[in-house]
């Protein structure tokens, strides 16, 4: 077993455990902090996949913005954060069955696929993933249109969020 595999197994186990705690912990502030742990694990997975730029974006956007936004929302709805009722609804076993069946179905479908256990080709020397990504995002032959549509979507979300949360009094 190589060092890379050991790192993957440790990080993967931590990510899954932290993810499980996100959905089961009762206190929502703790759940948001476990989400930060999960997102860090996913950032390390990106690094293992040689996608360093995405790992940085994951830390800056997901942990720096989204997780903090969650903590703000939990604090703004504070009286309900430590709610008196149960954390899960009464059909939680149905949800557990659906989740386990989804996982089993995905795992079964994937292991019937021929490319399931293939290994990665070595990265050619001089290959600059960040340079390639920047080129793909801004060249008209690449993905400049989805990139611009994403910026319009973010603007619409910004206006929508301000409008929804605005106190009309």
């Amino acid at each position: 077993m190589t060092g890379e595999q050991i790192i993957f197994l440790i990080v993967g186990a931590v990510t899954l455990i932290a993810g499980f705690l996100v959905v089961t912990v009762r206190n929502l502030v703790h759940a948001a902090l476990w989400l930060v742990a999960t997102l860090f694990g996913v950032a390390i997975i990106y690094t293992l996949l040689n996608a360093g730029f995405l790992a940085v974006v994951q830390v800056v956007v997901y942990i720096g913005a989204i997780a903090i936004l969650f903590i703000f929302a939990v604090m703004l709805t504070r009286r309900q954060a430590a709610e008196t009722g149960p954390a899960m609804n009464k059909n939680w076993w149905g949800g557990a069955v659906v989740a386990v069946l989804t996982f089993a179905g995905l795992a079964f479908l994937l292991q019937t696929w021929s490319g399931f256990s293939k290994t990665a080709a070595a990265i050619p020397s001089g290959f600059d993933a960040v340079n390639q990504l920047g080129g793909a995002l801004t060249s008209p032959a690449g993905y400049v249109l989805p990139f611009e549509v994403a910026s319009v979507l973010l603007l619409a979300a910004l206006v929508g969020a301000v409008y929804l949360a605005f106190n009309k009094k």
Binding site: T2, F103, A107, L110, A120
Partner: peptide, 27 residues
């Protein structure tokens, strides 16, 4: 090297955990 299957199984597990959270949480 890490086979592709490890990543796919990890992603399937994380997706199922998220699905469980969406289905059962009240908040």
């Amino acid at each position: 090297m890490i086979p592709l299957s490890w990543y796919l199984i990890l992603a399937a597990g994380l997706f199922s955990i998220g699905l469980f959270g969406v289905l059962v949480r009240r908040n």
